[in-house]
């Protein structure tokens, strides 16, 4: 049964990838990207990689198609047919790269093989000792937020840098903070009463669910990254239906920009706090006498930092994109 599901999902995945190349029209491509994300995530689910599937569902199928849609809205829908000579270099280069990648996979151990490098290095230690050292059921969270917290700090910094880069690129010179939306009165010709009411009922529950994912990451799939994305997508939903000026009055762009830095700082200060008491960077044992409790507190704080940064960076990017779009309209 599992084999059948995997085969069908992989065939659909390849078909979607092929269609993405063939289809003209950027809106259609965006829809197919979303389907591709859903398929990837389903595939991760059947492979038991629940946390990865969670992230892929929230980012690959959710937020990134939304940002692509906003981009399409700002630049126009058509994709011009290629003119001129055949891109010979690309046609040669792509099959060669693909062949190299396929040759590379031949060396990989089969899925689930016990002597795969990933299963013989540090993973057995994490799996065996996570229970007594950290004491939370979800080993993924203990690896992400405790054993490998330094790597995670790097990832959060990457996300923060992405937000800063978007602000730098989309801000026009001479006009400070022009990536922030301007407060113009909203003129919807066609108010979406039904959608607004239904979404107004749903948004609090989406936010609540985001908080559940944030603080339940130790016990089930989830954590700061996924929770941040869900939180931001609730804000985006509000913005889509009520207009950019309204959502900016609820969630101030300046505050969000500050918060994206605050999240990283929470993470970093947690590490420095340990150094001040003479321990290694990001050693959580300074928080409590009992090492397991200390780990709990540390993971909670660090995940909170991750969640704040991810949510606010995605909101910042949404504001910057949507502002471009609304400026292009007027």
């Amino acid at each position: 049964m599992e084999l059948l599901v995997n085969i069908v999902l992989l065939i659909l995945l390849v078909a979607t990838a092929g269609a993405l190349v063939v289809v003209r029209g950027l809106l259609a491509s965006t829809m197919l990207t979303s389907v591709y994300g859903l398929l990837c995530a389903s595939f991760f689910v059947t492979m038991d990689a629940v946390d990865v599937a969670f992230t892929e569902a929230a980012v690959g199928a959710g937020v990134s198609p939304l940002l692509l849609l906003l981009t399409v809205a700002a630049i126009g829908r058509g994709e011009p047919r290629p003119v001129g000579a055949l891109p010979v270099l690309a046609i040669v280069l792509v099959p060669v790269t693909a062949a190299l990648l396929i040759i590379g996979t031949l060396d990989m151990p089969p899925f689930g093989s016990p002597d795969a490098p990933a299963h013989t290095h540090v993973a057995p230690r994490y799996l065996q000792l996570s229970g007594e050292e950290i004491g939370i059921p979800n080993v993924v969270t203990s690896v992400l937020a405790s054993y490998r917290a330094f790597d995670t700090l790097g990832e959060v910094l990457v996300i923060f840098t992405a937000g800063v880069a978007v602000l730098l690129i989309l801000a026009t010179p001479g006009q400070r903070g022009s990536a922030r939306p301007r407060y113009v009165p909203d003129n919807h010709r066609d108010p979406h009463t039904i959608l607004q009411i239904v979404s107004r009922i749903l948004i609090p529950f989406i936010l609540l669910f985001a908080l559940y994912v944030q603080f339940h990451g130790e016990y089930g799939p989830g954590g700061g990254f996924q929770a941040g994305v869900i939180f931001a997508s609730a804000i985006i939903l509000y913005g889509l239906l009520y207009g950019l000026p309204t959502v900016c009055r609820v969630v101030r762009p300046a505050v969000v920009e500050w918060l994206s830095a605050v999240g990283v700082l929470i993470f970093g200060i947690t590490g420095v706090f340990a150094m001040l008491s003479g321990r290694p960077f990001l050693d959580y044992s300074v928080f409590a006498d009992d090492p397991v409790t200390a780990q709990h507190i540390g993971i909670l704080v660090v995940e909170l930092g991750v969640g704040i940064t991810v949510a606010s960076v995605i909101t910042v990017i949404y504001y910057a994109f949507a502002n471009q779009f609304e400026t292009a309209e007027s």
């Binding site: 959608l195 239904v198 009922i201």
Partner: peptide, 20 residues
Amino acid sequence: LFVLFSSPTASHALAKAAWN
């Protein structure tokens, strides 16, 4: 509950967008 709320709303949204 979520599907019961969102699925008819999404259908409505699509029909409206297509008509417009």
